[in-house]
Design a protein around this nucleic acid. Structure first.
Length: 594
RNA sequence: GCGCCUGUAGCUCAGUGGAUAGAGCACUGGCCUCCGGAGCCAGGUGCCGCAGGUUCAAAUCCUGCCAGGCGCACCA
């Protein structure tokens, strides 16, 4: 697993050292455990460390510190960029890297620019990513929004790591829910013209139903009033479906979430695909009749019990459609499927994986990401939402209130499988407390710095033209090290399907930048420039209290040479690139100014 | 009752076997004559739900229990 460019080199060096021990007969085992290289938790343990000796010790049944010492000697002797190697109990290898070696990271970022962090991990494997897939029976709510943000981020991450991604929205436009929608809208339509008509008891009560009914009334006038109820309802259903789906499309567009394909359940049924899928299962003996219904033997695949696929009344269940749908997806020549579902569907996972298996595919051809609930916080209190009464805050309302950037970032700040409290007030605040602004501000601040530099006639040099070896301050090295981890992080996010890690990474990176920026000057000061020399900023007498706030930083006394200015500008350009790349993968904009 | 998910600082949460477990918020006190103060610094808090086990090493893996959420339709 490729970490930063330095980590990779260290891994290679350790691997060579291990081979050498083998040749010298210190190791009996042919097997070499994975070579882990990581940042140690404490600065005094060096720049990088590896527990490799402990892993080897286990296989070799030798004391870890002995193996560690042997490896240390070998590394010390052969690796010019490793300044020192220490062995710490019980057998850690702690490495001090020559500070200027880290500059390779900056060159790496500059070479790859907006492709830094991208990789070919997926080797072009085809992934079909299905997300949102909300029923067209109402506007999108916050839960859908979370799924949308997650799906879009995953699509970006998977694309960036070398997968070929198709984004699909599955439209459940058949079945009971659509009938209820039709009846509900028809009732409101009739009521609009003063004709009495009761809403179905378990129908849709939301006020948006009335709005749709009014739209339909304007569209077709009174023409449906005289039609037989069944036909009129069907027509209402069709029109309502079109309106609601269009609303969903527009909401998603406003959220900057796009799909490559929209797949309709009714098409699946009409084409006979559902029947075909069930026939195939029947041939395998995985479908049987009982009590006048048709059942899928899902219990053979870890489900609690068998499930009905065709009801007594001859209609397919949603499961039948979904089985056919997943078969269809698998048949399209993809390597695996990813579904993003609401966590309330978790009981459904084993059934679908069963279906996948039933068709002869491995269970891991289908990965399901479950997304937990979203609650809205306003004024520190939860906003009541009753889906039954159709009273919930829609995604659109939140988008209008806080904008797509903050909304996306907030949805992605938590792991998918933990419930999310969405703090509306926090999402709207424009200060450091708001993580989105904190990160975006870092980007804008750099953009501003480069603008000022340009105004002063100072160009931002390329890394190869900059004296980057002068970057030795702790704040500088921390920044560079953080940049070096980015490609590995992107891969981890893609592999675990967990974009939230990226939000944490970006907050850390932004934090490191702000600290650096506070402590160190980049451009030559012109306050002191009255003497014509850039450099030392005037020291002012400080009280003890003030020293507490600013001291230790040492930034007030620091001279800014032309070299440092050039090196820092070159470095900060790369920081900006990585922030930009990271935000891009989350679908959040990187503003030049705010 | 069965299944899935979650229990980590006052709150919200990171931490895919490594060393003395972290961040943000909240609270307190500081820091702007110059590159964006939308920023920074300094203060402290933890039987990592509980109990066993595996391991040189466990918040992390296994088992059991406790608590919360969700699911257990011929609805989607």
């Amino acid at each position: 697993m490729p970490g930063g460019i330095i980590q990779q080199q260290v891994q290679v060096a350790i691997a060579r050292a291990v081979e050498k021990l083998k040749e010298q007969g210190h190791l009996q085992n042919a097997q070499v455990p994975p070579i882990v290289v990581e940042f140690p938790k404490r600065a005094e343990w060096g720049d990088l460390s590896s527990p490799i000796a402990m892993a080897l010790a286990k296989l070799e049944r030798k004391p870890p510190h002995v193996l560690a010492a042997l490896l240390a000697d070998s590394l010390q002797a052969t690796c010019p960029f490793i300044e020192q190697v220490h062995v710490a109990p019980p057998g850690f290898l702690n490495l001090v890297i020559r500070p200027d070696a880290w500059c390779a990271v900056l060159q790496d970022v500059e070479d790859q620019r907006d492709r830094y962090g991208w990789s070919n991990l997926g080797q072009g494997k085809r992934v079909l990513l299905e997300y949102v897939s909300a029923n067209p029976t109402g506007p999108l709510h916050m839960g859908h929004g979370r799924g949308a943000a997650l799906g879009d981020a995953l699509a970006r991450l998977l694309t960036a790591t070398g997968y070929t991604v198709q984004r699909e929205y599955y439209i459940n436009d058949a079945g009971r829910q659509m009938k209820l929608l039709a009846a509900s809208v028809y009732a409101r339509y009739c009521q609009h013209f003063g004709k009495e008509m009761a809403l179905p008891e378990d129908g849709y009560w939301g006020s948006y139903i009335e709005q749709v009914a009014v739209q339909i009334a304007q569209q077709v006038g009174r023409t449906l009033l005289d039609r037989p109820i069944a036909a009129a309802q069907e027509e209402c259903g069709r029109l309502a479906y079109e309106h609601l789906l269009e609303t969903i499309r527009q909401d998603l567009k406003a959220f900057r979430v796009e799909f490559d394909s929209w797949f309709r359940e009714t098409q699946l049924i009409a084409s006979g695909a559902v029947q075909h899928a069930l026939d195939m299962l029947r041939e395998k003996g995985l479908v049987f009749e009982q009590d006048g219904a048709l059942w899928f033997r899902s219990s053979q695949f870890g489900d609690e019990k068998d499930r009905v696929v065709c009801k007594q009344n001859g209609e397919y269940t949603y499961l039948a459609s979904d089985i056919a749908y997943h078969y269809d997806k698998l048949q399209r020549g993809v390597d695996f499927l990813i579904n993003i579902w609401g966590a309330d569907h978790h009981g459904y996972v084993s059934r679908m994986q069963g279906a996948v298996q039933a068709f002869g595919y491995a269970t891991d051809c289908l990965r399901v990401v479950l997304v937990q609930m979203v609650s809205l916080l306003r004024g520190g209190k939860k906003v009541d939402m009753s889906k039954r009464a159709g009273e919930f805050v829609t995604l659109r309302e939140v988008l209008d209130e806080v904008g797509p950037d903050a909304t996306r970032f907030f949805f992605l700040m938590r792991r998918a499988d933990t419930p999310l409290d969405f703090d509306l007030d926090l999402a709207k605040t424009q200060s450091a407390e708001n993580p989105v602004y904190y990160v975006q501000y870092a980007h804008a601040r750099l953009a501003s710095l480069f603008r000022v530099a340009q105004q002063r006639g100072i160009t931002v040099p390329l890394v190869r033209d900059a004296p980057v070896h002068v970057l030795v301050q702790p704040e500088e090295l921390k920044l560079i090290k953080q940049l070096s981890v980015f490609p590995e992080l992107v891969e981890t996010c893609a592999q675990t399907l967990e974009p939230h890690r990226l939000t944490f990474y970006l907050q850390e990176l932004a934090g490191l930048l702000h600290v650096f920026y506070f402590k160190h000057r980049v451009l030559p000061s012109h306050v002191n420039g009255e003497k014509g020399e850039e450099g030392v900023v005037k020291k002012k007498k400080k009280t003890l209290d003030e020293v507490q706030g600013t001291a230790e930083a040492g930034m007030v006394q620091e001279p800014v040479s032309a070299e440092k200015t050039a090196a820092r500008l070159a470095m900060l350009r790369q920081v900006q690139t990585v922030i930009q790349n990271g935000l891009f993968l989350l679908g959040v904009t990187a503003p030049e100014s705010m």
